[in-house]
Design a binder for these strands. Structure first.
Lengths: 202, 202, 202, 202
DNA sequence: GATGAATGAGTATTCATTCAT
DNA sequence: TATGAATGAATACTCATTCAT
């Protein structure tokens, strides 16, 4: 989208819609959707309101687009991991680890995700939830597959396990700091390990 | 006024500050702090704005008071459980189960908690976080005690385990429904079990 | 007015109405009538709103009473000076000097006077202006007497001279500071001298 | 909008910011800054609140701008008079007379000036006072020049003389009425004469 | 594509005053 | 005498959005 620079590319900066999304993400994460004014976003992006409304139908659209990007990314990655040819426990561990790493790498999106979904319009909220549900179902099916294959405890409710684990993931935004003592991979390794131990047959 | 029970007793109209807190809790959980107007709160409580500002210094104060109630309740319960004479794994399981049950019983507070903390004034946010941290530390010390006693895996980072588990707990508000298929105790049992399995020595 | 202390006078502090007037004067001078809330006044006086409304019909009444005190004081003093047996120029000089000194001694009242008169109710404003006019007329008649006696220039409009001089007096509140380089008497001496030179026959 | 003259020209509707300033000046003079609501100003100017806040950051800004206009005008005029080649007493008389005339011609500004300065924000107050002081200093230097040249009494404190005279000027707003018996020039003549007599060597 | 002036409905908060006790 | 809970109307200011240019 708009990666081609018109003319000689004399502006040097990214295309307007990208810049708007980037600044909106940063600001929504920093002070919340409702507390960020359209004025602040356009100022940060160095454009005017008219420009924003030229590319996005509403402030709400901007947020929706942010959600879209996150969900597309996560879905792609989970699909790729689930499709591998390795044993289920290994795939679950990798999926868990991967979602932690990407959640930390896109910490602003992670913060926005579970904090601002209620500020989307009802229809957009429904759309986002549906996509999210599909993602959770794919994750759940990994657990079910592991139960069927006798790797994981059969008495667990797979959906509860998914909610249990994604609660942890979504909360990364509330405590993780890039300049803290733990790297994304260290957290990912431990979270993945905790999940695997919690579901594995003793 | 009305703190004395007129006539035959439980007349339904609680004292004004209590009514305001109750309605604010409900509304904040339903549509978020920023999207709930002071006008809506006082209308729901059947009083005027002046009455609200007679008891609370600001909308922000109302939210702070809601946090205070939750934190006091949870701290008391954890203190009581941690002080028991039973083996650590049992105490950890009970603490985990208990926090799930009370989080579900006060689901509105749970929803507000992790969603609205950023809308408190910086100082109040600091106060709430400090109290929250104390709660987490008490929980963490149970894990450390279990590690020292050889019950739990020694290679785990207790603080990460706490963040892992409380992520799950705080997210109850996003998916649990009282009219769903699971009772509070069923969820509590399974979450507690998942936690214990994730930390126990194999 | 409430100068009698009920009972043994065990409170030690001044009577309530006096305390209210004193604090109101201070606050009105400091931040203006409209910017001073009734709540602030009663807090400063250490009483409750009910008490204020027991003694004064309204906030506006409080202001009116402050004006009353000033006007009574100034009128009394001018009457005394005007009634003396000395030559007119001397009496005018003394009257001018005296009003400067008392304006400085009651600088808070001076500040309030010319700044807050518009915030009185129309009727009270009318009453204050009438009393003020009587004061000015008395002052003016000193000038007229001096003109008739040949001391002062006959071509001056006595009313303009009065407005000229009292402008200077009322403005003391905007620039005079007790901890500045000039004593009240020094200012009074110079202002009186300027007035006399401005009206005297060459 | 409307800075270009639509159709046949002078349609009566000035540009929005100008109209807002004009109505605000009138209303602030009539009922005081605190007693004039933003709503009243925009209604008088025939625009909406949004339009006002598009041009002015706050109600306070509006007042500041009014002060700015007055101060710029007065400073320019005094500079021009002081720079003339005539004897000091003549220049002082003209400066005094001129400030009276312009104060009367802009009587609303004069009323606002000494009544509302305390309602500006502290920083803006400071800025206005600084500019005012510069104006007073220029006026004072005329007096000093006259003393040095032997025209004026050497024992007078020039700063006190300035405060004495400008008290009179600022108070014009409290008593002068356009439909009264005196023209602006008559008052100016007499005030100027009183000032000159008060400072001149006998 | 992009501007920026203007809208209009909405927000939290303040405050003088009343009145049952 | 005095309290303090409650009122209700008013206040300055914000903001997403529109639209003529």
């Amino acid at each position: 989208m708009a990666r081609t620079v018109t003319g000689g590319g004399e502006s040097g900066t990214a295309a307007v819609p990208e810049r708007l999304l980037a600044e909106a993400t940063r600001l929504f994460a920093e002070r919340g959707y409702d507390r960020t004014s359209v004025q602040e976003i356009v100022e940060a992006a160095g454009v005017t309101k008219g420009a924003l409304y030229h590319y996005f139908g509403s402030k709400d659209d901007l947020l929706h687009e942010i959600y879209g990007r996150v969900l597309r990314l996560q879905t792609e990655r989970l699909d790729a991991i689930a499709a591998r040819d390795t044993p289920v426990p290994e795939r679950l561990a990798e999926a868990a680890s991967d979602v932690v790493v990407t959640s930390i790498q896109n910490l602003d999106d992670t913060k926005i995700f579970f904090r601002s979904i209620h500020q989307l319009s009802p229809e957009k909220q429904k759309a986002v939830r549906a996509e999210r549900r599909r993602y959770h179902e794919k994750f759940r099916s990994l657990i079910e597959e592991g139960q069927a294959a006798g790797h994981f405890r059969a008495d667990l409710r797979p959906d509860l396990v998914v909610d249990f684990f994604f609660g942890s993931v979504h909360h990364l935004g509330t405590w993780y700091h890039a300049d803290g003592p733990l790297s994304a991979h260290e957290v990912a390794g431990e979270f993945s390990d905790l999940l695997l131990h919690s579901v594995r047959r003793p």
